[in-house]
Design a protein around this nucleic acid. Sequence first.
DNA 1: ACTTTTATTGTAGATAAGTTACAATATAGG
DNA 2: CCTATATTGTAACTTATCTACAATAAAAGT
Lengths: 110, 110
Amino acid sequence: MSEHPSNEEWLFDYQLLSKLVIGIGEVSDITGLPTRKIRYWEDKGIIQSKKDCEGGTRKYSYLDIKKIILIQELLADGYTLDAAAKKVENRIKNINQTMLGLSKYLDQQD
Amino acid sequence: MSEHPSNEEWLFDYQLLSKLVIGIGEVSDITGLPTRKIRYWEDKGIIQSKKDCEGGTRKYSYLDIKKIILIQELLADGYTLDAAAKKVENRIKNINQTMLGLSKYLDQQD
DNA sequence: ACTTTTATTGTAGATAAGTTACAATATAGG
DNA sequence: CCTATATTGTAACTTATCTACAATAAAAGT
């Protein structure tokens, strides 16, 4: 009973969460964007994937997908790609702050 | 400011989180297990992956990985595979309860 | 000692998924 | 009609993963 971390801690494993990187096909399935478009946005610098090497496969994290979904919404609202990208950056910074704060909070629990 | 969900809500997007399924190669990188061993555990029924079709590629969720890591620890402790699997099942049920409860709690916030 | 069970690994030959790099198309403003 | 912005198509190639065979290793029974 005391040998394990609490259920909450076990559930919100940030270290693990940040390692969860998925392929471009899954991103396409989740977001509804064709892979071609995802690569195009990346070529334009709107989003960034992780690649271990040239010619290797692109990997996307949870926050990358969040970002893509947010950009989609802004585009539907009438923003240009560049404008949407700029707007999203601010929100991402905000999220990172929250994530950091929450992480610290959880660390001092138990 | 009020057009967005709160940072917490944005961060803990369970619906999205549950869609984040990664390939066997990533699972191998994260857990340190060779892919061959992961498939073997699956053949034995210790773990289960999602496959859209026969011959399709295996996909693993966040909780699947958690499970694998937990089994690893139990094996290191001296458990047999079957015993470890059984022990882990209980913990998983517990986690699912927590996840459900937390999900409901977050729904009634804001 | 040897036979079984348990756990793991090797690999060939296949398919699935993803890459780059070319170009083509569409559409809205100026 | 021209230009910038956004998107799409595809061929040829590489990387990732699949199945299905079998082999090995170590511990547990008898």
